[in-house]
């Protein structure tokens, strides 16, 4: 052992970071799914959507969600950043490697880090817009009509991809389920989530058109 390692020796550190990454990831997935369910209230009707939105505002659930996202998202980013090849040389190696070995799961990891970075940027914009713009059927449909349709469609796909691959990775690593079965289950969940999201977007979009 070298001195610098001996001085800062903490055998549990890596384990704790690994746990933080997993737990924060799982919480974010839960958040995403809850978020999608809430948004899906539009499927029942405008009143349901607005009612839910009002309820959340009254009970300070929106700021709570933002605090949650900053904390948990921050922890997640902090934990995963150690995995992402930070140096240019390493980046070159992993991309070359993925191209070389023709291995689907290796590609999915690269996409995972790319989508993660993209989600971070898009989510910040989304939160800012929602915070300043407010949540209401008319505002939301208006936003989607005027330029945000593509933005949300992209965010939806990225978030679902990232969440699904992340979940897959956790289950694979801890070995609780068979890999091909996992593929199937997560595939179904992804299709459902994207389906719901797309329908919601479509409804808002058409509402915006009629408004």
């Amino acid at each position: 052992m070298k001195l610098q390692k001996a001085l800062s020796y903490s055998p549990r550190a890596d384990f704790i970071v690994e746990v933080i990454q997993m737990v924060s990831g799982l919480l974010l997935v839960l958040f995403l799914w809850t978020h999608m369910l809430f948004v899906a209230s539009i499927l029942i009707g405008s009143n349901a959507f607005n009612g839910l939105s009002l309820f959340m505002e009254k009970n300070y659930l929106l700021p709570a969600a933002i605090v949650f996202l900053v904390l948990v998202g921050g922890a997640h980013i902090g934990a995963v950043i150690r995995r992402i090849p930070s140096r240019w040389a390493e980046q070159k190696i992993v991309w070359k490697h993925a191209k070389l070995i023709h291995h689907a799961d290796t590609w999915s990891w690269l996409f995972q880090s790319v989508t993660g970075a993209a989600i971070l940027a898009l989510a910040i914009i989304h939160i800012a817009v929602v915070t300043y713009g407010g949540i209401d059927v008319i505002y939301s449909s208006g936003r989607i009509k005027h330029g945000f349709l593509v933005f949300y469609a992209v965010l939806l796909l990225l978030a679902e991809y990232h969440a699904s691959v992340g979940l897959y990775r956790i289950f694979v690593k801890w070995g609780w389920v068979k890999r091909h079965k996992l593929h199937w289950v997560l595939g179904v969940i992804s299709v459902l989530t994207v389906g719901i999201g797309a329908t919601v977007l479509w409804i808002f979009f058409t509402m915006g058109v009629h408004a």
Binding site: P11, R12, A13, D14, F15, V17, E18, R82, R83, I101, H103, D105, T106, S108, W109, R169, I170, V172, K173, R179
Partner: peptide, 23 residues
């Protein structure tokens, strides 16, 4: 065992790509 492999150079360094298992 934990002191040997319970870290980033050991089992917690694995990110679950499973190319090992496939190959």
């Amino acid at each position: 065992y934990f002191e040997v492999v319970g870290n980033e150079d050991g089992v917690f360094g694995c990110i679950g790509l499973m190319a090992c298992d496939d190959n």
